[in-house]
């Protein structure tokens, strides 16, 4: 059936790569064989960072250079990413899961279900607590909304409880998880959800 494919979208700097770095050891500890595809404009910055992290075999990290709008390669024409995922599956037949990080986008970005089985959208408290109220498609349509950088809430004057409540209200029952990638907070909840809903274990 091939590996499950999970998309990770959200604005630049919200913590998508940090979240991947947190999830890698968690998946490793439950023997999930994993690979990562990153999307950058014209560099392999994120891929290099993950390769250097020592958390994963560098061969299992692939950079797709979008060249143009980062949302195009995850939505309108995900061919580059689909090809990269297909190639990873051939190279590593034991793969259970491929994480695909989008190049960073605005609140309107969504993933094509031709590319991924399930996708999360990562925002952070420092982006402002009005983000859920803006009802961007990323926040509304994603299978999971992650509100990252919980630790920064007091410094940026954000009422996190209210942000969480408003996010939940706008998502008709779909999950919202608060994380702090600096302190491994919330990471296991995300891993558990992926195991249940996507890996179907």
């Amino acid at each position: 059936m091939g590996a499950a494919r999970v998309g990770i979208g959200g604005p630049v700097g919200s913590g998508k790569t940090a979240l991947i770095e947190q999830m890698l050891p968690a998946f490793k500890s439950i023997d999930i064989s994993i690979a990562v595809i990153t999307n950058d404009l014209v560099t392999a910055e994120d891929a290099d960072r993950i390769r250097r992290s020592g958390l994963i075999d560098p061969e299992r990290v692939v950079a797709v250079e979008a060249g143009a709008c980062p949302h195009t390669v995850i939505r309108e024409d995900p061919t580059l990413n689909i090809t990269a995922a297909d190639e990873l599956e051939i190279k590593f037949p034991d793969l259970d899961l491929i994480l695909i990080e989008s190049g960073g986008d605005n609140l309107a970005s969504t993933f094509s279900l031709d590319l991924v089985d399930w996708w999360m959208f990562v925002i952070d408290v420092a982006g402002g607590d009005d983000i859920p109220r803006k009802r961007g498609p990323g926040c509304l349509q994603s299978d999971l909304l992650v509100i990252n950088k919980q630790d920064l809430a007091p410094y940026v004057g954000v009422d996190l409880d209210r942000m969480l409540l408003e996010s939940k209200e706008s998502r008709s029952g779909k999950p919202v998880i608060v994380t702090n990638c600096r302190a491994q907070m919330g990471i296991n909840k995300i891993v558990d959800l992926i195991v249940e809903e996507v890996l179907l274990l």
């Binding site: 059936m1 091939g2 031709d114 089985d117 249940e196 996507v198 179907l200």
Partner: peptide, 22 residues
């Protein structure tokens, strides 16, 4: 309908895990 992996419930409340080729 575009999904290939999903966990759903039937109208009789039975869980079904669907994982079909792409």
């Amino acid at each position: 309908l575009k999904r290939h992996r999903l966990k759903v419930k039937t109208d009789k409340d039975h869980q079904v895990a669907i994982s079909i080729p792409r």
